[in-house]
Amino acid sequence: MKFSSQTKQKIAFMLLGIASTIVIVPVIVIFTILIQKGLPAINWQFLTAMPRMGMRAGGIFPAIMGTLYLVSGTIVVALPLGVLAAIYLVEYARRNFLTRMIEVAIVNLAGVPSVVYGLFGMGLFVIYLKMGVSIVAGALTLAIMILPVIITSAKEALQSVPRSFREASLALGVSKWQTIRYVVLPNALPGILTGTILGISRAAGETAPILFTVAAFYLPRLPKSIFDQCMALPYHLYVLSTQVPNVSPKIQYGTALVLVGMVFLLNLVAVIVRSHIRSRKQW
């Protein structure tokens, strides 16, 4: 069968259009279902109260707070480590075997399944370093998981700072470190922030890495210290949907909606920061 080039073009465009539309379908479906079934559950009490009756009633406050603690801990560890590593790789390291190995390691780290991070975290932090099942252990595990994201985005952000800025600064007799500190970093900051927020939103949503390192099955109180266990939204959701019988779907969907909402909010912040900076950028 032969088509004219006109028809071929129409068919091709149609296929391309369908392919890209399919991408948005799951997003819409997920959000519609979550909002439809979860929104009725959400009220002030649901967000701020402790769970009761074996999680079948009450709120999800400790899980929300637990996730916030974990996310903060993750940033505190991963952001400085990732940014410093990126600065070293971009600004100082010479192109040699070692730097290539580091770069390969980063790419591979990004490809490791999250459950492996969970087991690694349990082995290293919980058992070997005797931190126990705790917020520190969980945050460290999550931090290692998102390090590749942060390093990669920070590297790209640093590399996108024009060479002419560095030369201008160095030629004024400003030392290399001062040049990085006062010229390169400020101009790379938006890119670094975006990458960080994306990394964090991934950390907030993962279940496997916290499964063996921090997450408590049922702990209707807030953690007392960073060496305490805590509840966390993703794991709480998993528990509600598979481990506890007779939980009303309203609570399940409400929890899912809160989790997705938090991740969505973080991503939104990243998008806003990025577009705001892009509009200000003049080179």
Binding site: P162, S164, F165, E167, A168, A171, L172, G173, V174, V183
Partner: peptide
């Protein structure tokens, strides 16, 4: 470099 300054081909203000 404080003593020997440089002006570049393209103006490169920060």
């Amino acid at each position: 470099r404080k003593k020997v300054g440089m002006v570049f081909q393209r103006p490169n203000p920060f």
